[in-house]
Each structure stands twice: as C-alpha cells, then as structure tokens.
C-alpha cells in the first residue's frame, strides 16, 4: 500500500487536511438573472485569471452549459479541485416578447427564447451528474418561488449536497435573513459576486460541505 493510500485509509482526518481532493463536479444552479455566471466569473478570475461566460442584465444570457475544469481553491493548508459547471437559469415560462423590450428584433427574440428553453432542459438533465450544487439566489427577491423549491427539492431527492448562495448583497433591497428563513435546513452564505464580497466565507462553507459528505 502506498503511503498516500495508508494515510487515506487509516488517518482520513489527516488525509482531508493535507491531501489534494479528487476532482468533483460543482454545479451552479438557480433561476435566471440570479448571478450564476457572475459568480462563475469571480471564481475563475481568482483561480485562472479569466472569465467563464458573458453576463448581462437580460434574462437567459447563459443558454448553454459552460464547463471549466481544474479549478483549485485554497483555504489554509487545504485545497479543493473541482470542475465548475455553470448552468442556464431554470424557469417555467419563457416568452420571446419579454426580450423585445431590450431592443431585440422579433427574429432575434424568438431565437433567444428557443435557445433558452433548450438551456433549461439541459440544466435539468445535468442535475444527476453533479457532486455538489451551489444554488445561487437573488437576495433582493422572494426566495420562496416554486422554481427555487423545485430545484432544491430535486437536489435533496437525489441526495446531492447543497450550499445556498444569497447573491447581490451589495444592493439595498438584499435580505439574507429571508433566504435563511425560507431554507432553514441549508447553509446560506451571502455574497456579492459582482464585487467579490464574502468569497472567502463562500469557500470556507464549500470546504465544510465537501468534507462533511466525504467527497
């Protein structure tokens, strides 16, 4: 038995402290415009010095699954490697007319709506492939929407560890307490993905959840 194998078998505590973890698939899920891609960009900028995807204030900007491999975050002597999966926002309705308000022509708006519906389907299909999921919610909005409840309920049914991120805490209307009250059985971390606020707390919470599940 190799030394690393011996440590892993008989001293799992030491293993978790000093060893590099195996690569896990970390998914970013949530409703449209919650800031999933902004968050993915913050993480990628810090670890790789590059963005993951394009962001805008128009819903359904991310319409395809984006994957970035070999992202490593550190906290003290611990480090965690993962594949980051940024998913299109999950919605129950998509109306091309909503995109017309942003100055798109009808053809463009219909194409965007079509791509957005495909994106939602892909996000749901990928649920089964995730090892851990970060549910990104807009902390200025009511967290008790049926989409949020369905996403979190599905993750629980699949026994996938969940960390809830209450994003946009830099805004006046942000209310983390409301998010915590809506999902009391989950750890909730408030961040501002746009300005990179509280990312360290987010990483610490992520380490905790991964260690707890022995991933």
């Amino acid at each position: 038995m190799a030394v690393s194998g011996f440590i892993a078998r008989f001293f799992p505590f030491l293993n978790s402290l000093f060893q590099r973890r195996t690569n896990i698939k970390l998914g970013l899920y949530g409703p449209p415009n919650a800031g999933k891609t902004t968050m993915a960009n913050s993480i990628c900028q810090e670890c790789l010095g590059e963005d993951m995807g394009v962001v805008s204030n128009i819903a359904h900007e991310t319409r395809e699954i984006q994957v970035k491999e070999q992202i490593t975050i550190k906290s003290g002597k611990k480090q965690l490697s993962f594949t980051l999966v940024d998913t299109p926002g999950i919605a129950t309705k998509i109306d091309y007319e909503d995109f017309l308000k942003y100055g798109m022509n009808e053809r463009e708006a219909k194409r965007r709506a079509k791509e957005a519906t495909k994106g939602v389907i892909d996000s749901i299909k990928w649920l089964d492939d995730m090892d851990t999921v970060i549910v990104v919610l807009d902390s200025t909005k009511d967290p008790m929407s049926q989409v949020n409840i369905t996403i979190i309920g599905n993750l629980a049914a699949r026994n996938i560890p969940v960390l809830i991120v209450a994003n946009k805490i830099d805004l006046k209307k942000a209310d983390i307490k409301r998010v915590r009250a809506a999902f009391p059985q989950y750890e909730v971390v408030g961040i501002s993905a746009k300005y990179g606020n509280n990312l360290t707390e987010f990483y610490d919470a992520l380490f905790k959840i991964v260690e707890k599940r022995g991933l």
Partner: peptide, 14 residues
C-alpha cells in the same frame, strides 16, 4: 414527486 416537478418543467420547455 420532486422528480416529476422537474420533468414537468422539462416537458413544458419542450
């Protein structure tokens, strides 16, 4: 069921 809710969204999108 929760899985059915997700499938309902999937079928709706289709």
């Amino acid at each position: 069921r929760k899985e059915e809710e997700a499938d309902l969204i999937k079928q709706t999108m289709e």
